[in-house]
Nucleic acid binder design. Structure first.
Lengths: 217, 217, 217, 217
DNA sequence: CATGAATGAGCATTCATTCAT
DNA sequence: GATGAATGAATGCTCATTCAT
C-alpha cells in the first residue's frame, strides 16, 4: 500500500536485521561484560557469543568502549524516568532516599538474576561486578539526582558531595552483600541502607543492656 | 681464585640477591599497578622496571595475580598491627571507627601521592585507582577487623555484616572524593565518615529554618 | 504516473546514469591515485569519494587494476592525437623531441598542480607520484611514438630502443626535479632535456677556462 | 682458555643464531621485495620465507621500513667503496661516468640473476623492479657521488642537479632494457649510456645518407 | 542495476611463557 | 638461578568481495 521510494523506509527485513544485529551485539556484550568484566573482554569474545562475523562488529561500533557506552545509555534511558517518578512521589527526603535505594537494589537483583541465567554462576557467589555498563550508568544517574535533591532541598547539608558519595558507597557495598544472601532481600537492604544513611549506625544498634552503650561516649 | 663454578657457594651474596630480586619485582609491580592499574599492566611492564630478564620473573612468581597477592600480603602484614593498636587504644566504638578511617584515609593519601610522584598525574585528578593490591588488602583487613569489633562489642548490631559493608563503601567513595580536593583533607574526611556512619546524615544536616526538619515529617 | 516499475524505461536517464557512474568512479580513482598512490589506495577509498555504494563498483570494474587501466586508456586517447600533431608539425627530429618533452612536462605540471589542489601538498615537495595511471599511459605513448619516429626517420640510430628508454628516463627524472623547483619551469626543463638527449652533456657544459675542456683529452 | 664472564662474549651458538636469524630475515625480505615489490610485501610474507615464528620478526626489526633500511644500508656499505675506487682511478669525467655506469649495470645484472634464481622469473621478463632497497641505495650513492664530482670538477655544468637526475634516469631505463636482452650486455649498455650522456643522441646516430641529416637544421 | 550489510581472510602487533645456554 | 631469544596464540582492525533486497 505505502509506495515507498527506494531511499524512503529502509525496507522490512533489512531494517529488522540491522536492528536485530545491533541488539545481538549489545546483548552479547552485556553478557560478557557481566561474566568476565570490561577489561577482560575482547571484541572477539563479544562476537563469539553471536552468529555474526568478526568484521560485522565494526559496522555497528567502533570499539569496546562504544558498546559500553551504548549499553550504559540504554540503562540510563530506562532508569532516569524511574528515578524521576521516585523524586516526584517522595514527600520527604527520607522517602526519596528509601525509594531510590529500593529502585537500585531491585535493578541490581534483576541484573544479577539475568547474569546467573546467562552463565555467570560463580560471579553471583562472589558478588556483582560493578564494572558493568549498566551499573556505571545507574550510579551516575543516582549521583546526579541525589546531588540535585540535596541542592534543592531546604536541608542544607554540610557537604552534599560527600554525602552523595557516601550514599553511593553504601549502595554499592550493601548491594553486593545483599546478592550473596539467597534469596536477595531488597526490602531489607533498602531499610538498612536508608536508616544508616539518615540516622547512622547507632540507630541500627540494639543495646544488650540498659546501660547506654559504653561506645556511646 | 675468584673463578667460582656456578654451583659453588650458595649462601651469602646469593641469598641476598634472591631476596633482592623478589623485592625488585614487587617494587616494580607496585609502581606499575598504581600507575596504570592491574588489568592494564603486563608482566613485561613489570620486569621492564627492573634490571632483570624476562624469564627471571617466573622464578619468583607464576603470574601477575601472584605478584598481586604477594603485595597485598605485605600490606596486610604492615597494616594489621597498626589496626590492632588502633583497636587496643580505642576506648569506644566511636573512637575505633574514627581511628580506622583516619588510618585508611592517611594510607590512601600517601599511596596517591606516591603514584603522582611516579608518573600518574592524571589518575590523581580522576580519583584513586582501587585495583591496587594494597587497597584490596587494606579493605580486607578493615573489613575483618570491623566485623570482629562488631562481634565482640556489647553493641549488638542489627546486621554487622551490612554495617561493615557500608563502612567500607563510605570509605571507598569518600576517599575518592577526598583525593580530588587538593590538598587532601584527611581529618575532614575522617570526621565526615565517622559522623555519618555513627549518627547518620541528619547529624550532618544544618537546617535552614527553625522548623525541625521537614524531612522528619 | 511517475511511479515507474524498476524494469520500466531503459534508455535516456538510465544510460546517462550508467555512464555518469562510470565516470564518477574514474574521477574519484584518478584523484585518490594521485593523492596517495596506487598501492595505498583501496577500493573503499575510491567509492568513498563517490555517492555510490560499495557493491556498485563491481558493476563497472572488477578490480583496482581495471580502473587503473581504464584511466590509462583515457589518457592514451587524449594524448595520442596530441602527439600525432606534434609529430606532424615537427620539421626535424630535434623539433619533435623538443615538442614531445614540452608536452610531457606540461602535462606533468598540470597533473601535479591538480594533486596539490586535491590535498597532497607534501607529495609535491617530494616529487611527483609516477604510479598514476595517466603517467604510465603517457610514458607508453611517448615510448611508442618515439620508437616509431626513430624507425621512420632517415636517421638510423644505433639502438633506437635504448635511445627511447634513455629519453624516457631523462623525462622521468628531470620531470621530478622540475616539480621541486617552484614555480615549475616547463621551458627550462624542455630545453635541458632536449639538448642533453641530442647533443649530450658536453653541450651543456661551460668551461671555466680557455683550455678546451680537460676532460676531453 | 679464554675465561669469559657471563656477560662477556655472547657465547657461541647464541651469537651465531642471533646473527643468523637477522640474516635470514634480511635474505627473505630481499627476496620478497624483489619478487613482489616493497608495497605489496607484508611482514608475514617475509617471515614465511623463514623458519622463524611471526613474533620473532619484532626482535630484530620494528617494521617493514626498518628491514628496507637495513638492506639498503648493506648495499650502501658494499657499493660506496667501489664507487670511491671508480672516482679515484678515473682520469677524466668521461672515464668516471663510464666506470660508474659499468659498476651500476654490473650490480643490476647480478641482482637480477639472483632474483631469477630465487623464484621471480616473470619479473625478470618484465624488467627489474626498482623499488628494491638495494636499488634505492645504489641510486642514492651514485647521485651523491655524481653531484660531488660535478661540483669538484673544473667543468662548471649549467645545471648539475638536472644532469645528475638525467644520468640516473638513463641508468634506470637503460638498465631495465638491458636486462630484457639475454644475455644482459653490460658493456654495450655502459657504452651507450656513457656516449649519450656525454655527447648526445647525435653521436649515436649513423646517417644513411651523405646528406648531413635533414633533422640537423 | 544500485544498495550496503555481512563476510571472513588477512595483517600488524603484543604478550605470556618456554627453554637452551 | 639468570638470561633473553623464540614461540605462536590472540587481538584489534581493514578490506575485497558477495548477495539478498
Amino acid at each position: 500500500m505505502a509506495i515507498a521510494t527506494k531511499t524512503g523506509v529502509t525496507s522490512g527485513k533489512r531494517a529488522r536485521t540491522k536492528a536485530a544485529n545491533r541488539q545481538a551485539i549489545l546483548a552479547a556484550a552485556r553478557q560478557v561484560f557481566a561474566r568476565i568484566g570490561f577489561d577482560a573482554t575482547t571484541i572477539r569474545d563479544i562476537i563469539r557469543e553471536t552468529d555474526l562475523a568478526a568484521g560485522t562488529f565494526y559496522n555497528y561500533f567502533r570499539s569496546k568502549e562504544e558498546v559500553f557506552e551504548a549499553i550504559a545509555d540504554q540503562s540510563t534511558r530506562r532508569f532516569r524516568p524511574l528515578l524521576q517518578t521516585v523524586r516526584e512521589q517522595a514527600t520527604s527526603f527520607e522517602e526519596y532516599i528509601s525509594a531510590a535505594y529500593r529502585a537500585y537494589f531491585s535493578f541490581l537483583k534483576a541484573q544479577n538474576e539475568e547474569a546467573v541465567r546467562d552463565g555467570a554462576p560463580h560471579m553471583a557467589l562472589i558478588g556483582v561486578r560493578v564494572d558493568t555498563p549498566e551499573m556505571h550508568a545507574i550510579f551516575d544517574e543516582i549521583r546526579i539526582d541525589l546531588e540535585e535533591v540535596a541542592r534543592t532541598t531546604n536541608i542544607s547539608l554540610e557537604d552534599s558531595e560527600f554525602l552523595t558519595a557516601a550514599a553511593i558507597g553504601i549502595a554499592r557495598e550493601i548491594g553486593d552483600h545483599m546478592l550473596k544472601r539467597r534469596p536477595a532481600d531488597v526490602e531489607g537492604a533498602t531499610r538498612f541502607a536508608t536508616t544508616l544513611l539518615l540516622d547512622g549506625g547507632k540507630a541500627l544498634a540494639t543495646y544488650g543492656e540498659k546501660d547506654p552503650a559504653p561506645s556511646a561516649h
